[in-house]
Amino acid sequence: MNDMTLTEKPVNASDIKITARNVQVYYGTTHAIKDVDVDIPDRTVTAFIGPSGCGKSTFLRCLNRMNDTISICRVTGNIALDGQDIYDKRVDPVQLRAKVGMVFQKPNPFPKSIYDNVAYGPKIHGMTRSRAELDEVVEGCLRRAALWNEVKDRLHAPGTGLSGGQQQRLCIARAIATSPEVLLMDEPCSALDPIATAQVEELIDELRSQFSVVIVTHSMQQAARVSQRTAFFHLGNLVEYGETGHIFTNPSDPRTESYITGRIG
């Protein structure tokens, strides 16, 4: 039912992929996210920045309902993907997460082979009809994650045996194997060394051609390097959201300016 063919969509940054309105998140009695409104465009890298504990990761996890796995977490408000409310009762989070993939802070390859790591998503979602097709998907994803040349001779070695940067690229390959429309990345480089970080950043920039990428990062330089749009969170509020260049050069809110100049953080 899924044709693995290239269907070029026109790159148009004004296409809105995700709209969030009036989002509140509570952890037990803690009000973690307050009144967040945001529009995330398609085929763009959007960066969430802010000091630790500002709620940027929490908000990111709302976008594919990963917060459902935490029993004390409660989300209200409206988040829509292509205009459809993802918190609607009819939505199966399992299907949603196939469309909105996620890459985590610490590389978390499964203790399986490299091949099985990438093949896991397509297998559970039944995306391929034959072994050959699956092989093709795995190879394609590994290539797009710029990992193919490094691992093509040891596809059946355990994924946990790779270096940190390779592991994270494996996780990215694993995430794009379900052909998502949005890719959420929660500080994907925080556990990596500078060289691996540069490789992953390069990869993110390439992924922009097909996905809407949302990245949470601690590093403002990274946000400036990879993103086109930036949102600044502070104490659970979305303080400022706009063109990355604009936010970094001419922030309109004093809190943003303090953060960018290093006075809070």
């Binding site: 899924n2 459809q84 299907q95 394609g140 052909s179 429309e181 097909q210």
Partner: peptide, 24 residues
């Protein structure tokens, strides 16, 4: 390079047969 965004835009509200089976 054959892989890309492939799912023909499908409504999130429609639970497909495979997902139903998986949920069962």
């Amino acid at each position: 390079m054959t892989l890309s965004s492939t799912n023909p835009p499908k409504s999130l509200f429609a639970v497909d047969a495979r997902t139903r089976k998986r949920n069962a």
